[in-house]
Nucleic acid binder design. Structure first.
Lengths: 193, 193
DNA sequence: TACATATTATGAAGGTCGACATACCGATTT
DNA sequence: AAATCGGTATGTCGACCTTCATAATATGTA
């Protein structure tokens, strides 16, 4: 048989990048193949499910990458505040480095597709849930009670996602700077009610 | 001339709704015409700029509607906390009523298009900026210092947008409930740094 | 009142691009 | 040497955005 090529991995990586930048519907299969350097026909061999299957796989891949990044941010920190700040700064760096083209790798596709495709919706859901869980773990690890950490993790993720959206739209990292402050407030613990 | 019909307004309203639910690229001109009840050909008469012009107009319309809603939430409240809570609850109600199909009317299209279309990017930017300003005004009105209100407005909007994204993806309003708590914390004033 | 004209509105057709299916090639294994 | 399996190239069908020729109505003029 022909060599077990790496074209599948390259295709997937290219797909994840393009979905991140242009969303699901804004990305043509043709673009993915071209960016990945793979020949046109090999697509339906690797992904019999077509575009939806590629989307699912790309979302899962990107989701896992971010999850790992959050986990390693926790490892590199020694308190809740620096943990969250590290995550925020990482996102800001990604966004700025890419010329404000690469924000959250899931958000765009999630908004576009989660209402109409069960498979893509599930992939987005899984990614976000894993992130929330990883943030919760980090906060718990640095001393926040589990119940509180669960709530705070959602708030932190919302804050991050919203800031990424505004930053991308404004083409400015200012919203992310502000999110950093907001997130510090959340790290410090919630109010009394 | 033919009667000055209301088909332009109906088309625009239908477009705004569809863009909100399915995003820009996920919505075909054909769908818009059908939903608006307008005949196929009348589109390029009302909107010579084609799909991009419709998108711009729809985004502007939706942006103004939300701005007005924020302003009236301020009028109906007598302190910062209830002002923000009112906004959050309004969004939650919209989302739930629509079966988790109608979240932020701008976010999806903004993420999809603001990198590639100057016109659509500007429309999204304007909408978000107006919202931020309106939130800032409300917070200032209820006693928050202007500088602080400016920062807090961005944080509040980020929190809201992120919560809307998560809620839509999870098909659950729980993230919005949590955002309500987070936003109360922000209303109370930021920390010391 | 009748006609001409400019403006508003409409339906159908065209051309491009996208997703997908199928037919094909080469290498490895028996 | 033949068959099978991993991988590739071409072709088809449909959807989408856009344009254009045409109709309908209102306004101006005689």
């Amino acid at each position: 048989m022909a060599k077990a090529s790496d074209s599948k991995e390259k295709t997937l990586a290219a797909a994840a990048k393009l979905f991140r930048q242009q969303g699901y519907h804004g990305t043509a299969l043709h673009d993915i193949l071209e960016a990945g350097g793979s020949p046109r026909g090999s697509l339906y061999f690797h992904f019999p499910g077509g575009k939806e299957e590629i989307g699912q796989a790309a979302l899962t891949l990107a989701g896992e990458a971010v999850r790992a990044a959050i986990a390693s941010a926790a490892d590199a920190s020694d308190n809740a505040e620096s943990f969250l700040v590290r995550i925020v700064r990482g996102m800001a760096a990604d966004l700025e480095r890419s010329g404000f083209k690469e924000g959250c790798p899931i958000a765009t596709s999630a908004l576009e597709t989660s209402a109409q495709s069960e498979a893509l919706g599930a992939a987005s859901r899984n990614a976000f849930q894993k992130w929330e869980l990883e943030i919760k773990r980090g906060l718990f690890r640095f001393g926040m009670p589990a119940g509180e950490a669960d709530l705070a993790a959602t708030m932190v993720l919302s804050q991050l996602e919203g800031a990424l959206l505004l930053a991308r739209t404004y083409r400015s990292i200012e919203p992310i700077h502000r999110a950093e402050q907001a997130v510090k407030l959340l790290a410090r613990g919630r109010g009394s009610e």
